[in-house]
Amino acid sequence: MKYLFYVVIGFFFGVVMYKSEAASWFRIFEMFQFKAFHMYGIIGSAVVLGAIGIQAIKRFKLKAFDGTPINLPPKERRLYSYLFGGVLFGLGWGLAGACPGPMFVLVGAGFPSLLIVILGALLGTFIYGLLKNKLPH
């Protein structure tokens, strides 16, 4: 039953990704060409509202639905992994035009070729796991 809550959130997320066109390869290309405000508006407004809400959670010490304190752990301080990992991710995002959420949304939307992208992403994750200790973080 508790799983249903997450399926519903995911469902809502999937509809938003499709209806906002954030899952469209064309919109990602357009964003990296700086030819439309659309994607910047989506990410920017999500972050502005997100930042206000997170400040409110911290200031008023808001509790989770089950009454436990909300824990927002800071990201580990280091540089190389965020930068190098980020650049590699961006190369893939630009090429496939879909980030990890939209990949799945698009499979549901009737584009089976995204299964190839997902297969690639699983391979990439697996190879990272193998090489993790040899990479600069």
Binding site: S81, Y82, G92, L95, M103, L123, I127, G129
Partner: peptide
Amino acid sequence: LLLAGGFLIGFGSRYAGGCTS
């Protein structure tokens, strides 16, 4: 191209510890 794009996304997001979300 699709495999390579996916591979970069998977490898890069784990290396960076997260993606767009």
